[in-house]
């Protein structure tokens, strides 16, 4: 688990160019990384952190989201029933599970499982023109963010979970 890898996006370096989402679409047909645009016009991709304690897996009654050998949290379409309640989507603190019109109707990142089989890294990390996406071990991912990255990430998290404003504010 400790030496397993995950994705880390430095939102401070990201320029919102959409390359990650489009490359993901090219590789997987239905992208598992998804651009948002906040009310202030800031564009950034939402992505799965392959959490150490994943809420998505915790709430799924079918046990359809499991950790694979490399540490990625993978949705198994054989087990997923595409239930209407969408517990996994609601449980993810990073809004990293998406609804689609296809198959089991939810998609999430599997760290490019088929590519990993061939010894390749996730496609988005390879192609981000800014080098904002890193495929690194967990400890490194935790040590990477600087002040600018944290401030930028806060803007994304405020989009995911808008801060409560007091009435009249």
């Amino acid at each position: 688990m400790e030496d397993s890898k995950t994705l880390y996006i430095d939102y401070g370096k990201c320029i919102g160019c959409e390359t990650c989402e489009y490359v993901c679409r090219f590789v997987h047909d239905m992208p598992r990384i998804h651009m948002i645009r906040t009310a202030t016009g800031f564009m950034a991709p939402l992505y799965c952190r392959h959490c150490a304690e994943p809420n998505c897996a915790k709430v799924c009654k079918r046990g359809a989201i499991v950790r694979d050998r490399d540490g990625a949290m993978v949705l198994d379409p054989m087990l997923c029933r595409g239930c209407q309640s969408r517990q996994c989507m609601l449980a993810c603190p990073y809004m990293a599970i998406f609804e689609t019109d296809k198959g089991v109707t939810v998609v999430k990142c599997d760290l490019c499982a088929a590519r990993r089989q061939r010894g390749l890294e996730p496609a988005c990390a390879a192609m981000c023109p800014c080098g904002a996406i890193e495929y690194v071990d967990r400890a490194t991912a935790e040590s990477l963010p600087d002040e600018a990255a944290k401030a930028a990430e806060q803007r994304v998290l405020d989009f995911v979970k808008p801060p409560k404003t007091k009435p009249g504010e």
Partner: peptide, 9 residues
């Protein structure tokens, strides 16, 4: 844009 873009909750 794509007609079948994925959606967030």
């Amino acid at each position: 844009d794509f007609r079948d873009a994925p959606r967030v909750r």
